[in-house]
Amino acid sequence: KRPMNAFMVWSRGQRRKMALENPKMHNSEISKRLGADWKLLTDAEKRPFIDEAKRLRAVHMKEYPDYK
């Protein structure tokens, strides 16, 4: 299984929150909104998620060195 990218790290928490706030919203609509919201974030706002994704990638490479 591939490590999560920055968007996936960020959206994991946001998806739960949005689903709780909008229980009747379909998952596909939540995904569209999350994508739009992510694009509106500044680089500074994205930085912690980018850093976490880099950390996850490094751990994955160490655990699965032959993964392609």
Rank of each mutant, 00 (worst) to 15 (best):
R33N: 07
K1Y: 12
H26D: 15
H26V: 10
S28M: 03
S11E: 12
Y64F: 15
I30R: 02
R12F: 08
K68S: 15
N5Q: 04
R57P: 12
M61H: 12
M4Q: 12
M8P: 05
Y64R: 14
D43P: 10
F7Y: 08
I50S: 06
R47H: 05
T42Y: 00
D37M: 13
R33W: 03
R33V: 07
G13F: 14
R16E: 15
H60Q: 13
M8V: 09
S28K: 07
V59K: 12
S11Y: 03
K54M: 09
H26L: 14
L34K: 04
V9T: 02
P48Y: 09
R2A: 13
S11T: 04
H26K: 14
M25R: 00
A53E: 08
N5E: 11
W38I: 05
R33I: 09
M61I: 08
L41P: 01
M25C: 02
V59A: 11
M18H: 07
P65K: 11
N5T: 15
P48G: 02
H26Y: 02
K68Q: 13
W10E: 07
Q14L: 02
R57I: 09
E45T: 00
T42M: 04
K1Q: 03
T42D: 08
D66I: 03
A53N: 01
E63V: 06
K1S: 07
D66R: 07
M8F: 03
K46E: 03
N5G: 07
D51S: 05
Y64I: 10
A53F: 05
L56I: 07
E45V: 04
K62Y: 11
S11H: 09
L20P: 04
A44I: 10
R2N: 14
T42R: 05
K54E: 14
F49V: 01
M4D: 14
P65D: 14
Y67K: 15
R2L: 11
R57V: 08
K54A: 12
H26Q: 14
D51E: 14
K46I: 01
M18P: 01
R57C: 12
M18L: 12
H26C: 13
P65N: 13
K46A: 01
L41F: 07
A19Y: 05
R57Q: 11
W38V: 01
L20Y: 10
R33F: 08
S28R: 06
R57T: 14
Q14N: 08
M25S: 06
R47M: 08
L20H: 07
V59Q: 10
E45K: 00
K46H: 04
A19L: 14
L41V: 03
D66N: 10
R12V: 15
E63C: 02
L40V: 08
L56E: 12
T42V: 02
P3A: 05
P3L: 05
N5I: 00
H26F: 04
L34R: 00
E45A: 07
E63F: 04
I30M: 10
K1N: 10
K1D: 11
K24Q: 09
M25G: 03
W10H: 03
R16L: 08
L40E: 11
R33E: 06
D37F: 00
D51A: 08
P3E: 15
H60M: 13
N27W: 07
N27Y: 12
K39N: 07
K17W: 02
D43F: 05
L41K: 04
M4T: 10
W10Q: 01
W38L: 03
K68F: 15
F7L: 03
K54T: 11
W38S: 05
R33K: 14
L34T: 04
I30E: 09
L20T: 11
D43A: 08
K24H: 11
E63D: 12
N27V: 07
P48H: 00
R16H: 15
Y64K: 14
R33C: 06
S11R: 01
S28C: 10
P48M: 00
M8E: 15
L41R: 00
R33Q: 13
R16Q: 14
Y64N: 15
D66L: 09
F7N: 05
I50G: 03
N27R: 07
A58P: 03
M4R: 01
K62C: 13
D66E: 12
K17E: 12
K24A: 07
A44Y: 06
E29Y: 00
R2W: 06
E45L: 02
